[in-house]
Amino acid sequence: MAKVELKNLTKTYDKKILALEDINLTIEDGQFFVLLGPSGAGKTTTLRCIAGLEKIDSGSVLFNNESVTEDQPASRDVSFVFQQFSLYPHYTVYENLAFPLRSPMRKLPEDEIKTKIESISKMLKISNKLKNKATELSGGEMQRVAIGRALVREPSIYLMDEPLSSLDAKLRESLRVELKNIQTNLNATILYVTHDQAEATTLADKIGVLKEGKIVQIGTPEEIYENPNSIYVSQRLGSPKINVLPGSLFNINGNTSTFGIRPENILLGTGNYSGKIISIENLGSETVVAINFEGHEVLSSIQGAYKSSINETINFDINTNKVLKFNKEGNRINER
């Protein structure tokens, strides 16, 4: 495994469309790094630049402090889980998994390949599918084979492009846990791309938030959640979504133009503020209550079920210590 660094990386498509601008990023050896951002933010492009599938305009890519900027993908020795699976359609699952191990640059003996594939397929629960053709699998199985094809190798870095996005919720959760275990056991360096915040917070050692081709904040999941440096970042994490409200509400002092407060910091049943309930959503372990306060929708989430009905007027309070203040540009002010 390797430490991977991006220095001032800039990438444009067709010399016009700016995809990545001045990206600086360090992924430590053995770190699980998650890139988070909406589609079009440049997540996939970042992966492709590291893999060497895209030529970068300027800047450099370093593996263990050595530049690989000019190297071909094969000599960079990375493994890549593509979003669209990209299994080799004419071959069986076994042959797909064996393919990277049979590369002339790695040539392992066949019996060693066999043991490797058996252990990986057991881990990913595809042992009974090894003889199937790649095209005869369900979407979830294909995705697991694609992950397996990356995991049979010990590359410099694992690059994963939304590898769980096409799975159903149950499988996604179990594989998420499995993936984190694998990473811890192998002490693997992983750069993982997603727009799913649950994946980001559960998997990541560090999260990098991308916005329109720029890294806007890097930090641990807790830092990103508790201490976002802009409205944009604050909205990336948290479900239900953070309340973003005008500064004039609730007598928040200073030159706050906008402020954000997470739904768990809106306390129901006490306090001096009151509003009408718009909706109640019971999610099992928590309940999300939407309140109309002076024309603004305010979300509150509370533990367990909540007995009340729509259109009822309710008192609530806010935890002022947890208020995030932003200026006109949407950036955080008086950061701690």
Partner: peptide, 25 residues
Amino acid sequence: PNYLYEAAEVDRANKWQQFIYITLP
């Protein structure tokens, strides 16, 4: 699809293997 060649390239297959494993079939 082009991504098959990309996958093969990342998997460190040379041009000849790409031809035999992907193009020809």
